Simulated assay, not measured.
Amino acid sequence: MIRVLTLDEHDQILAGGPELATAGGTRWIDIQDQTPEEIAWLGATFGFHPLALEDCLHLNQRAKFEDYPSAVFLVIHTLAVGAGPSDLTLRELHAFLTGEVLVTVHATALPEVERVWERAAADPELLARKPDVLLYHLCDEVVDAQFPVIEQLRESIDGLEDEVLTGRHERTVLQRIFAAREALVQLRRALSPERDVLLQLSKGADKRVAERTSLYFRDVHDHALRHAEAVDQAREALKDVLAAYHSAAANRTSEIVKRLTLFSAIFLPLTFVTGFFGMNFAHLPFGNDGFLLAALLSMLVLPAGMVVWFWLSRWI
């Protein structure tokens, strides 16, 4: 689906389809759920490089910045949260920037794009500016939307740490730890190269990004740096949580083995007494009531005395 925003000669906002793509002035062309025919139309209309057009049809692209003669081409990622903070989905946003046109391409509806689109559709002054300003607002919206996702994930890691340290964790805690680690890997894979993309935009080296706009891109780049640092800190915290979990598991195992050993030691005298007096001999030694009473008393006193001794020694 192709939609276009532009202004007429009276600075009135026009919204429509491909028929407005070649109108004069600043234009924003947004393509959702792109098809090969629509991407071929982009190439025929604006002369974008075939390699960039090919990237728009093949997802799983790395965040990147490419400076072609016809346009600046970049790929960034938005984040979608599923059932929990660790259930993350990365969605690609492709963008072409020329002196008069901003083209965005994405496979699914992106809330960040919709918010900026609605803002531009209601503000002729914003649309009257150059496309690099629209691109700035779009990148700023994408980066700002990443913060609550990272914060939720960090809070979930703190919750895992509390569960592990207090011993109140469930059997699924290890699965949740590895799910959080996988989410952090995805975040790092997306945010690390995204910093380089925003750095290129903040430098203002390309004439299609005005020097004034590059100053605003510096602020977006600074936010992206903070997000990347937060992800690295969360990875370190998750490593500590995993180490604490293994330590707690080892302590529980040692405690179980200790108790089993104590129980074995307690029952060892009973085993000896019952084994000695329960042998199937024709003539049992000490065959009188006195020795029988002594045997019964020893079976009661010895285990009780060992329990008291273990308790005084703080073994139980």
Results as ranks from 00 to 15, higher is better:
residue 154 R to C: 07
residue 178 F to V: 04
residue 198 L to E: 09
residue 196 D to E: 04
residue 174 L to C: 01
residue 141 E to K: 06
residue 191 L to T: 05
residue 179 A to Y: 08
residue 199 L to R: 08
residue 182 E to S: 03
residue 169 H to T: 09
residue 160 L to N: 03
residue 134 L to Q: 14
residue 208 R to C: 02
residue 169 H to F: 13
residue 192 S to M: 11
residue 159 G to H: 12
residue 152 Q to G: 00
residue 195 R to A: 00
residue 180 A to T: 00
residue 199 L to D: 14
residue 148 P to H: 08
residue 181 R to K: 10
residue 183 A to S: 07
residue 159 G to E: 03
residue 203 K to N: 10
residue 141 E to R: 10
residue 147 F to M: 13
residue 194 E to S: 05
residue 202 S to D: 10
residue 150 I to C: 02
residue 190 A to E: 00
residue 170 E to D: 12
residue 168 R to M: 09
residue 206 D to L: 07
residue 160 L to Y: 04
residue 152 Q to W: 11
residue 193 P to M: 01
residue 137 H to W: 08
residue 189 R to L: 07
residue 160 L to G: 06
residue 139 C to R: 10
residue 191 L to V: 09
residue 158 D to A: 13
residue 135 L to A: 06
residue 182 E to N: 05
residue 141 E to M: 01
residue 136 Y to W: 12
residue 146 Q to S: 15
residue 189 R to C: 04
residue 196 D to L: 01
residue 186 Q to F: 03
residue 188 R to K: 12
residue 160 L to D: 02
residue 197 V to R: 09
residue 194 E to W: 08
residue 202 S to K: 07
residue 147 F to T: 15
residue 181 R to S: 03
residue 181 R to P: 00
residue 163 E to D: 13
residue 147 F to G: 06
residue 154 R to M: 14
residue 138 L to V: 10
residue 158 D to E: 15
residue 169 H to V: 10
residue 158 D to Y: 09
residue 142 V to M: 12
residue 192 S to I: 13
residue 143 V to F: 10
residue 164 V to E: 05
residue 150 I to D: 04
residue 195 R to I: 07
residue 184 L to F: 02
residue 149 V to I: 15
residue 189 R to W: 11
residue 150 I to W: 08
residue 149 V to G: 14
residue 207 K to Q: 07
residue 166 T to R: 06
residue 161 E to R: 02
residue 191 L to H: 07
residue 150 I to K: 05
residue 174 L to R: 09
residue 177 I to Y: 07
residue 174 L to A: 12
residue 191 L to W: 09
residue 205 A to C: 09
residue 152 Q to A: 11
residue 201 L to K: 01
residue 175 Q to C: 01
